[in-house]
């Protein structure tokens, strides 16, 4: 038998399994579909498939050669999927490695910062300086308000006619002049 003939037979066995299955297709025995030369399980030990004959889906009957090639292509693609799956696993492993490294680095940094805050008071100088600056701003604001209040209190003790009135007139004239300039 030549190699070509053997290949044809092999191809025939692969793509024409329905001939062997026809004798066992009346059962729902999954082993019956196997390409055994002799039926080991002759009895239908499972639920009878006769009642469900109409609903039965055959994966082998009435398949054209082109359909079988398409299915074989599909099976081949499953193998490719397998290799892609392994590639995916590899990439996941790589991502996990990177995430793990990142987490470890972050954790180390957090610990480093925490240790600095707890152990070394000098490192809190920046925060302390910031707080001090905030207090400076508050001091300035209170100084402005305090200055204004002091001025008002001082003027409130002056004589209204002889002291405050001239100041009032002068300030009002200056304000009117400002308004004319803006206009």
């Amino acid at each position: 038998m030549s190699t070509i003939e053997r290949l044809n037979q092999f191809s025939h066995r692969i793509f024409n399994t329905s001939q062997n299955e026809q004798s066992t297709s009346r059962t729902s025995n999954p082993f019956a579909a196997s390409n055994f030369q002799k039926n080991i399980l002759t009895e239908d030990v499972f639920e009878s498939s006769k009642a469900k004959q109409n609903d039965k889906v055959s994966f082998t009957g009435n398949l054209t050669a082109s359909s079988k090639r398409i299915y074989s292509t599909f099976v081949g693609s499953i193998n490719d999927m397998g290799s892609k799956f392994y590639e995916g696993i590899e990439s996941i492993k790589a991502i996990y490695g990177r995430v793990k490294d990142s987490v470890i680095n972050t954790w180390n940094k957090i610990q480093e910062i925490g240790n600095k805050e707890v152990n070394v008071n000098i490192n809190l100088d920046g925060a302390r300086e910031l707080l001090t600056k905030e207090y400076h701003i508050k001091d300035i604001a209170s100084a402005i308000v305090g200055g204004k209040n002091r001025e008002i209190t001082r003027m409130s003790k002056m004589d209204p006619h002889s002291e405050v009135k001239p100041m009032f007139q002068q300030a009002l004239e200056a304000l009117e002049a400002d308004m004319v300039m803006v206009a």
Partner: peptide, 16 residues
């Protein structure tokens, strides 16, 4: 500035 000065004077006359 002059408005603030006027305002302060009025405020002082309020409590005078």
């Amino acid at each position: 500035k002059n408005f603030n000065k006027v305002s302060n004077i009025i405020e002082s006359l309020t409590i005078n």
